[in-house]
Design a binder for these strands. Sequence first.
DNA 1: TACGTTGCCTAATACCCTTAGGCAAGTCGT
DNA 2: ACGACTTGCCTAAGGGTATTAGGCAACGTA
Lengths: 189, 189
Amino acid sequence: MSRAGLSPEVVTTVAADLADEVGFAQVTLSAIARRVGVRLPSLYSHVAGSEDLRVRVTLLALEELTTAGEQALAGRSGREALRAFADLHRTYAAQHPGRYEAAGSLRVPASPEAARLAERMGGLTDAVLDGYAVPPEERVHAVRVVGSLLRGFIQLEAGGAFEHSRPSGEESWHRALDALDALLGSWPG
Amino acid sequence: MSRAGLSPEVVTTVAADLADEVGFAQVTLSAIARRVGVRLPSLYSHVAGSEDLRVRVTLLALEELTTAGEQALAGRSGREALRAFADLHRTYAAQHPGRYEAAGSLRVPASPEAARLAERMGGLTDAVLDGYAVPPEERVHAVRVVGSLLRGFIQLEAGGAFEHSRPSGEESWHRALDALDALLGSWPG
DNA sequence: TACGTTGCCTAATACCCTTAGGCAAGTCGT
DNA sequence: ACGACTTGCCTAAGGGTATTAGGCAACGTA
């Protein structure tokens, strides 16, 4: 009986891929075991259980998004940075719906890894805002508004809210980004 | 053996209450059966199954939100209407997290009831925008941006994103509404 | 090569969801 | 008021997922 060569990372990646295919909520240990060719209980050698696996997928997605964000923002600022950051998230959500869903779940337990990620994500939002003249004490609010709009739009679009009405989401997306740019350009109003 | 006096409406309401207490994803037919004092299979006389129940809870939440919206918006327009509409959703989400989660699930199957709700919800957003001079062909985009920001903010707040950082979400909420008001007041740019 | 570690297995338990079939409590026609 | 029909609730049974316990064999290492 040869071994399957599993590891926490492999199991997590398979789970993330499965989430992209059938939805994060439909990810099941049974399905993963079938896919990698082992019996269900064998997975417990690599992950602590169903909930642990969900957290791992969430952290994986956040890490991928953050890394991609750091690359996308390199050398950009202001409107350019905002657009790159926003488009990155929208594209990631479209290509990896399950991962994005996981990333949006929030509520990961505190851990060194989670803290490091939060730090890096903070750096990203700082980089975006650095191109705008938002007063220091207003930055928190600006970050929250930007995050809210992006997240809300992407989720509505992913949920099919714009599917059966004209015009397409694409045009609204550009309006939303223009609105955000104008907003940040004249913050706080 | 006396009867429990159940009905689709009662089961749905119990499910919604349970969702508010433990989260929409944790709502289970077993738990509902225990709560109303019947055996699990008895519920199948009232709902078609687990998925059917979820849809019913979603429609219940959307209906409650819409009805409350119609009352909150009566006699208001412009900034007043926007604020009433936004605060209503935020308050509803805080008081009925499970219901709000259900309402945000989207993707309810097409039905006469769903169509009626969509119609009424469209009327609400129209009422909010009527106080602003948004060009007719731009209304769709404005509605989407407003919806995205509100939804995103409320979800981030519900997910605890603002919990461990100052200032509180309350202040950011006011900034967000001011930003939306300014945005709609000078749409498209 | 012998040893300890560990990856994977079978077995067993505990939910949850769903369908089938039966009984009796309501409801309705006469 | 009585019988017949409808239906709300029940038990029984089967299938899926999650988790734990305990065993065996494949690997890394002395």
